[in-house]
Design a protein around this nucleic acid. Structure first.
Lengths: 189, 189
DNA sequence: CCTTTTTCTTAATCTAGGTTATTTTTTCTG
DNA sequence: CAGAAAAAATAACCTAGATTAAGAAAAAGG
């Protein structure tokens, strides 16, 4: 089943009995999306956090000149959301879309709050996720100042080994913050 | 008292009765540091998270050429730690030191784990802190690619309004990721 | 399978910000 | 308060990566 990946991920951090598992699963909604389909647009309120059971999503920012800056990719087994909007339930600044046909599990903000009340150890699970993600973005924010484009490319390869041969150079360029022209030149130099 | 600032911060997120407050406070240790004194060196395990009750700390990375990259400042009322090292209890990569004489409250990793068990709602408090910090570093990591040095300087001023006239240009340059020479030129252009 | 769209490549030119070096100003410290 | 150390300013020159443009290759879609 497509829940297994998520339950396995949770089991790494907290122990759930059968009843708790079922209760948790009852809060989830399955969603299928086609390649290029958007799940969130700039200005939307992000009402659900998304767990990718198959496929791949991405979250990106679009600047005033039309350039995309990719905040993160979410291949199979990753959570994704516009955290700012999800936490505050105010309009956000990110777009989220599918890089290929994908299957997701959604948990709404309202259900997540219920979950925290009814099974408090989920506070622990999501705290640990938030902390790990925090560490990773703390590194990245300094790497983006400190490292050259080539070094950032290498970090990308380490962080997303499954994506290197799967997504276009244009996507990688938008993640490491260079133009596609420069990335092409760099890879052929 | 120097605990009040922290208790007020906590009260914004969770309600504690008098007993819980006292129990929490019993886990804390007060520490005073002088200007320039280090609290953490690269390679150290960060055993305690630090809350600044007065003064200002900073966390920075030192690269192979001796350049400092400041991850964050922690003026009065802020938490600071090398999150990677604090979470994993493995040697970290950051330095933490005091920009002026400062007073801190420390909570050790061990005591924090006890606190989570004994007063589970602290999971909620630190989850919310981690989420807010995550949002802020997610923005910053993209801003560091997207924005010009001048725009990053403006973001710095918004994020740390109390620091602008208090810290040296050299510190600001190390935070926004430019050389002190360029920042000086930029501010006089 | 053919057409359209998107992506990739190459190359010439340009610029934000870096480097190096020197001088001036400010701040520590004894 | 003097001398030393650190920070800031200024300037000449340098480079990583951007911009623009145009053609080639690949992918998508009907």
């Amino acid at each position: 089943m497509n829940h297994d990946l998520l339950l396995a991920n949770i089991a790494k951090h907290i122990q759930l009995n059968e009843e708790e598992k079922q209760h948790f699963l009852s809060f989830l909604q399955v969603k299928k999306v086609k390649k290029k389909q958007h799940l969130l647009l700039e200005g939307d309120v992000n009402r659900s956090a998304m767990f990718v059971t198959s496929g791949c999503l991405r979250a990106y920012h679009l600047d005033e000149n039309g350039f995309q800056y990719i905040q993160q990719f979410a291949p199979e087994g990753w959570w994704i959301a516009d955290m700012y909007s999800f936490i505050t339930q105010e309009p956000g600044h990110l777009y989220i879309d599918a890089l290929c046909d994908s299957e997701l599990l959604l948990i709404s903000k309202a259900n997540l709050e219920k979950l925290y009340k009814e099974i408090p150890k989920f506070n622990h699970y999501f705290r640990v996720l938030a902390e790990k993600s925090l560490v990773s973005f703390q590194s990245r924010s300094m790497e983006n100042l400190r490292l050259t484009a080539k070094e950032r490319y290498e970090k990308f390869c380490l962080r997303y080994p499954t994506l290197i041969d799967f997504i276009s150079q244009k996507q990688i360029a938008a993640y490491i913050g260079v133009t596609p022209e420069f990335l092409s030149k760099m890879l052929h130099a």
